[in-house]
């Protein structure tokens, strides 16, 4: 059973009046992450919306020591800090529990530009948590396509709609044989909270990816951030799962789609709510292109269902 909302801790690590857009899904997610990690943590950020959201120097909108690092280096920088802390502890320069070292990185910084260093950190099983808040584009620079952008999406670099499907990044991290991988999204805050609490308790490399529907990039109305997040899950376009030591389990409602007890909603309702698909939906070949996207969703569900059967 997920933690009930009323039992979530009081602590706020994301401070009111930060620089994020109203309704920002990244900030919403980070708030829950803060409740799970608490104050004893060190945050690394690569260039992204969540850096712009920090506010204006000398003020800082997050209540952690925050380090802004280069785009490509979340994996290596977090590894270095984690090692340094262990050495300081050995030398007696830090007492008590070591802070959690975590990176808070967009999909651009995770799927594309930071992929190499992240993969290397995972292969070394570094003691860090890498969070990818996935708004399915490079949002901070005005919405360009990334490896996380789904097929059919309009971005400034895919003016006729992206032709390729997105990567399954969480699955790729799983295949690094790391102790913990999870996916989450803002509509299910208790599920996210529980996954972060679990990740915090595990030593070694943890990867958590959070779908973050961004009204600006996806072109829906600002108050609907959580609605879109819920629709993504209910249509199977976003799957909720976690893997402890390689063993996959699915969270509800995804679990019902995997075991066949329920069928996910058709993806077209979810697409119709987003302006980033409107050119595709209005085009002469709309039917085929929607079928292609539905095909991507169905394939991903089928793939994860089969992958979860491998438990050795």
């Amino acid at each position: 059973m997920a933690t009930s909302i009323k039992k979530l801790p009081e602590i706020e690590q994301v401070l009111s009046g930060n620089g994020a857009c109203g309704g920002c899904p990244a900030t919403m997610a980070l708030r829950m992450v803060g409740k799970a990690l608490g104050p004893n943590a060190i945050m690394l950020l690569t260039p992204a919306c969540s850096v712009a959201s920090m506010g204006m120097t000398p003020k800082l909108g997050y209540n952690w020591p925050c380090i802004n690092i280069t785009f490509a280096s979340a994996g290596s920088s977090a590894s270095g800090i984690s090692h340094a802390l262990e050495i300081m502890q050995e030398k007696g320069r830090i007492e008590g529990e070591l802070p959690t070292v975590f990176s808070w990185v967009g999909d651009g910084g995770t799927y594309d530009i930071g992929f190499q260093a992240l993969s290397a950190a995972a292969e070394r099983n570094e003691n860090i948590i890498h969070f990818c808040y996935n708004n399915e584009a490079y949002s901070n620079t005005g919405v360009q396509r990334s490896g996380a952008t789904p097929r059919g999406t309009f971005t400034t670099t895919t003016p006729t709609g992206k032709r390729q499907p997105k990567k399954n990044m969480a699955h790729m991290m799983l295949e690094h044989n790391i102790p913990y991988v999870a996916t989450a999204t803002v509509a299910y805050p208790a599920d996210l909270y529980d996954k972060v609490v679990k990740a915090k308790s595990i030593k070694g490399m943890k990867y958590i990816e959070i779908l973050a529907p961004c009204y600006l990039g996806w072109q829906f109305d600002m108050p609907d951030t959580v609605q879109l997040s819920r629709m993504a899950v209910r249509s199977g376009a976003w799957l909720l799962w976690e893997a402890e030591n390689g063993k996959i389990s699915f969270s509800n409602p995804t679990a019902h789609f995997i075991n066949g007890k329920k069928t996910p909603d058709q993806v077209n309702e979810y697409l119709m709510r987003q302006g980033r698909f409107s050119r595709l939906l209005q085009g002469p070949d709309a039917k085929e292109r929607i079928a292609e996207i539905q095909g991507d969703v169905d394939r991903e569900i089928a793939f994860m269902r089969e992958r979860a059967k491998i438990t050795i």
């Binding site: 620089g19 506010g55 003020k59």
Partner: peptide, 16 residues
């Protein structure tokens, strides 16, 4: 550090 945690790091955002 060059910055410190503060409420209203983006200003009085209620004015938005």
């Amino acid at each position: 550090p060059i910055s410190w945690p503060t409420l209203g790091a983006g200003g009085d955002t209620g004015s938005w």
